[in-house]
Nucleic acid binder design. Structure first.
Length: 468
RNA sequence: GGCCCCAUCAUCUAAUGGUUAGGAUUCCAGAUUUUCAUUCUGGCCAUAGGGGUUCGAAUCCCCUUGGGGUCACCA
């Protein structure tokens, strides 16, 4: 952590508008958020939409919606690069005036031809600087692009908080790259550097797929006389094939996790533990992350997305969630329990056995809704000829059992019947379970009965007795 | 292909140059449970390979191999 009051930390999340927030994006956003908040700093959100052909208004809304769901909050207004064109033009002009950038009249076709030539000679495709010191008359009817004068020799070192110092040989990677297209719109590496500088970003935390862009951005910073921020290039999240996570790997849209029944706490906990750890600790509340996270502790290697661990975390958070909160969340999955008088018993019983909220909602419905049929295999295994009489005896005992409320009340009735008939618990348990649930698995029978009550229990027993 | 990054159980990860290489998830087994799940206990499983440096290397250096990223008038 930086000493308080000495250094203001400003981080940012700068996605391009793809229509939804990607899980990998959420991770870098989370890390940026944590680092800013931990230092009492600022976390900005900027939409990188300089490519107008792909401009998508809804995209920013989708990102904000996802932020809201997981509980991340950005500071200030959302900046859209498409609204900042005059700023980029101004800075491009400054470079032009200072002789640090120049207009290039080479056509796309010429560029293409040059590249092919170079490739044929097994050389690195690279602009040949033909207009770098051009003083003649520009060719007729050609729109110029603006190129920045990149260093011709030497090296550029990225001081990265995760990877260490990464040295790039200028001759290997750079040329006078384009900062403004023929139509006047600026390009990515230029606007990123300009915006980060203008917005006062001090710590850039982003995916390491950007590491190789960084020297170019440093060229821009230096040409403009801006201070270079700290960089933290965090490793990618891979799928099981070891490749960058993509749509066909399943849920990459953050909001899909909500639909699937994951809690924001589990998702954030899962993401923060990918590439970062604090001793043996697995469970981190947002508060703990805020107290412990430091980007310089991030691992250097990529990590694989591990769905089982997410499930485990999710079940952990469901188990430990207050019923009231659970009740609220369950509404999204179509389960309304606010006025249910056995709500506490129901939720206590089910939160121990659900990996996701969707699973939990389904299990709740399995209890609340009378089974539409009986599982054939279950009938064969657990519903014998003798079972009918046992169920009838149990039904009678229930009717004469007086006031029954708690699971223990029902349990006593079961015990009494078992003792009276001198049978094992299983003899009554299996058929009763089939009657109540339609199958052989589920929560404790006493609990189920306590939730649905005597009348419904009797009705379900009758339904089974009437079956076939 | 050029450049860059990376390399501890299947997976996420821990280990001031000195530990029987630890924890977690998954998986397997046992216990608990009328069932299933939970829970508890136990178990299987790793320093990619080869050279150095050092009394001593998972840790530092080099090479090999493997994987990933990136090379646009996309971001």
């Amino acid at each position: 952590m930086y000493p308080k009051g000495i250094l203001m930390v400003v981080t940012r999340f700068a996605p391009s508008p793809t229509g939804y927030l990607h899980i990998g994006g959420l991770r870098t956003a989370l890390l940026s958020y944590l680092w800013a908040r931990r230092n009492g700093g600022t976390f900005l959100l900027r939409i990188e939409d300089t490519d107008f052909s792909r401009n998508d208004e809804a995209a920013a809304l989708a990102i904000v919606e996802a932020f809201k769901w997981v509980g991340l909050e950005h500071d200030g207004v959302i900046e859209y690069q498409s609204n900042r064109l005059p700023i980029y033009q101004e800075y491009a002009q400054k470079l032009l005036d200072a002789g640090k950038a120049y207009k290039c009249y080479m056509s796309k076709e010429e560029l293409e031809a040059l590249r092919e030539e170079q490739s044929a000679r097994k050389e690195r495709p690279k602009y040949d600087n033909r207009y770098r010191d051009f003083a003649g008359t520009p060719p007729e009817g050609r729109e110029a692009v603006i190129r920045i004068k990149a260093p011709l020799e030497g090296s550029i070192t990225v001081h990265d908080g995760v990877k260490g110092d990464v040295v790039f040989n200028v001759a290997d990677i750079l040329d006078d790259f384009i900062i403004a297209r023929a139509d006047g719109t600026p390009t990515y590496n230029f606007v990123v550097a300009v915006d980060d500088a203008l917005m006062g970003v001090t710590d850039v935390i982003r995916g390491d797929d950007h590491l190789s862009n960084t020297p170019k951005q440093i060229v821009v910073y230096e040409a403009l006389g801006f201070p270079v921020p700290k960089f933290f290039h965090v490793p990618m999240i891979h799928n099981h094939e070891g490749k960058k996570l993509s749509k066909r790997d399943g849920a990459t849209d953050v909001m899909a996790y909500k639909t699937l029944g994951y809690t924001p706490e589990a998702l954030l906990n899962f993401l923060v533990r990918l590439g970062w750890s604090h001793g043996d600790q697995e469970i981190f509340s947002l508060q703990e992350m805020l107290e412990l996270f430091d980007p310089s502790d991030i691992n250097r290697s990529a990590s694989v997305y591990n769905a089982e661990k997410l499930d485990w975390l999710n079940s952990h958070y469901i188990k430990n969630m207050p019923n009231e909160k659970l009740c609220e969340l369950l509404e999204f999955y179509g389960v309304m329990l606010v006025s249910h008088d056995k709500r506490e018993i129901l939720l206590d019983a089910l939160k121990e056995r659900s990996k996701t909220l969707v699973e939990m909602a389904n299990q709740i419905n399995e209890i609340l809704v009378r089974p539409a049929g009986f599982d054939e295999a279950a009938l064969k295994k657990g519903y014998k000829e003798e079972s009918k009489a046992i169920l009838q005896t149990f039904a009678e005992a229930l009717k004469n059992g007086g006031e029954l409320h708690l699971p223990t009340d029902y349990h006593h009735v079961m015990e009494a019947v078992v003792a009276q008939l001198e049978i094992g618990f299983g003899k009554i348990g299996q058929p009763l379970r089939i009657a109540l649930m339609g199958k052989l698995s589920g929560p404790g029978l006493d609990t189920v009965m306590a939730i649905i009550g005597v009348d419904e229990t009797l009705a379900r027993i009758d339904a089974l007795l009437a079956h076939q």
